[in-house]
Design a protein around this nucleic acid. Sequence first.
DNA 1: GTCAACATTCTTGTATGCAAGAAGTCGGCT
DNA 2: AGCCGACTTCTTGCATACAAGAATGTTGAC
Lengths: 227, 227
Amino acid sequence: MPVNTVQTLRDEIENGIVTGDFKPGSRLDETQLANRYGVSRTPVREALMQLSASGFVEIRPRRGAIVVEIGPQRLYEMFEVMAELEGLAGALAARRCSEADREAIRIAHTQCAKSAANGETDAYYYDNEVFHRAIYKASHSQFLAEQCLALHRRLRPFRRLQLRVRNRLPSSYAEHDGIVQAIFDGDADRTSSLLRSHIVVQGDRFSDLIATLKLHTETPPQEKRIS
Amino acid sequence: MPVNTVQTLRDEIENGIVTGDFKPGSRLDETQLANRYGVSRTPVREALMQLSASGFVEIRPRRGAIVVEIGPQRLYEMFEVMAELEGLAGALAARRCSEADREAIRIAHTQCAKSAANGETDAYYYDNEVFHRAIYKASHSQFLAEQCLALHRRLRPFRRLQLRVRNRLPSSYAEHDGIVQAIFDGDADRTSSLLRSHIVVQGDRFSDLIATLKLHTETPPQEKRIS
DNA sequence: GTCAACATTCTTGTATGCAAGAAGTCGGCT
DNA sequence: AGCCGACTTCTTGCATACAAGAATGTTGAC
């Protein structure tokens, strides 16, 4: 819980976006938000800019901030990158992890086992995060961990949905098991491969299909500013 | 050339950081910057926040912004991630690139050839960027392209240094040649592999060495906020 | 002489006010 | 009657003012 107004606002608005309180495509009026949270427009503006940097909203000059809509195409691209980064983290973890890292992974894995066995989706969702963070940490790459966490955060709502809707708990846990084995065996390639397919559930075919599909239809739904 | 004050300020300060005008570790006083650029403190603050999001500065609550110092450890981590992302972009490009993409890559490659032959480091530096961007585009992953560009931007000063100091022009161009071949052959794995080693010049050994070295020495120089 | 506590000053964080640009509306012209 | 243009209004963007917290310097006591 940050004592800073801006941080609080940022989390609040982000939460609103994630929970669907602020619908994609809707305008976020600075004055309205300022009134809503009982603060001035200045911290609201700063919070919106931070959210813009995180990719949650898009700020068009003189035209206000709108909640970005993540289409299926873009969503797949994000999962694709996530898979690659997680794969790298796993590969590095397999090569570099210390005994303490192994222990942390083992504990997180055991927790996942419990939640999966009881079918507690919410608990598993949390434990799953802990598990993946343990792998990030074991990669001993601070920067990579940061990147992974940022993307993870951005994909959080969709990930949650994924787990809920498709009831992937058992298969997810089974995949974790293989990943843990591969890391403990020090097999970087196998770890990377398993983690990639763990994230991107569908095969490469699907990604290619959508990519070429977009190639033909064109007219990207949102022109994202590179900044 | 953005008409926005904040954007201009952001670029200006970022440039100052890149060129060493603002030294790593030094404080960036809001009032000083405001006076220096003849604007108010408000846009300066917003620019600093954007730079914080990009990882150029670190803002500590109530204690101002300081230029982040990128140590060798972190630098290597960033190159490592960059290599992985470029590898992914290349792999996707090999599978998905259209005729227009191939043409763009060919043209950029030819430009690199000219600059390399003439030994024009600055020109090659620019052409190299165009070349890599062509690959990003050919990956047909907007999100991946954005990530690559952001990291590229962050690593820009170091990359330039790398090219200058080590006189890597000929070998860099030779590597490009292999990459282009692999993409045109549609060989995703080979493209990915070549691009990875193109970015991370040193082998994996070095990364492991530094990682374990950090493991022993500990005391991370800067505690980066994940945000 | 040194250390600690208090006060002062300086900087950041937030609020408000003002100006400029964009969108919606109304009126005139074709 | 429809379309183009000016006007009004609303919102953003920037500046300034004020408050609160941190750093530093000074003074007093041990």
